[in-house]
Amino acid sequence: MKTQRTLTWLTAVALAYGLFLAITSPADVVQGQFVRIFYVHVSTAWVAFAAFGVTLIGSLAWLGFKRPILDRTAAASAEIGVFFTGLAIMTGMIWGKPVWGTAWNWGDARLVSTAVMFFVYVGYLALRRAISNPIVRANRSAVLGSMAFLMVPAVYFSVNLWRTLHQGPTIRSDGASMDPAMLSAFLTNLAAFSLLFVVFLITRTRLELLAESVASAEASERHGLAEPDLEML
């Protein structure tokens, strides 16, 4: 609990500092002040990818080791990933309107594929809601979570496959294409949002564990058996 509290404070500080850097970083030569949305937009998109990556790892790990914490983590991460994907799409639209002249461009492969990825993982969450047996739910979610991750590279590489308005990679193997102050602001925000993801993940997983414990205690009470110990993270 203490560790989580510390982490939460650290995240708050990081987000505040990231916001400060985003506000005080230089404006872009072409986009002007609107470039500041970039720091949030790209960070949320990366976190969404990472979240779905954690879902993939959790899913594969569940298939191997069958420990409930792995399934809980995969599911929690998918929820958070859906949230950040939605945030990435919204911030992208807010950014796109002044910069491209349109909030949404159907010819933009990354935009469109991100939206489809959003719906795929909404489907993942819908599947979990539709199954009451926890083992069956975990097994099927694990298979879907593994398959759904194919959307992540599809989104990432979509800009290379399609004619697109979308900006190319910011940080490439031959070095960043960004001013150092802007790069600093970007990396700080990326780190801050990553910490935010970790805090969300821990909190959501604990919440799920508590909900299961409550449900189990209620069921035990109905059957007159001893109450189980609460297993805390």
């Binding site: 009451s132 047996n133 926890p134 449900a215 209620e218 069921a219």
Partner: peptide, 9 residues
């Protein structure tokens, strides 16, 4: 052998 579906034994 014991089998329970959730709260249902």
């Amino acid at each position: 052998v014991t089998l329970a579906f959730g709260a249902n034994q």
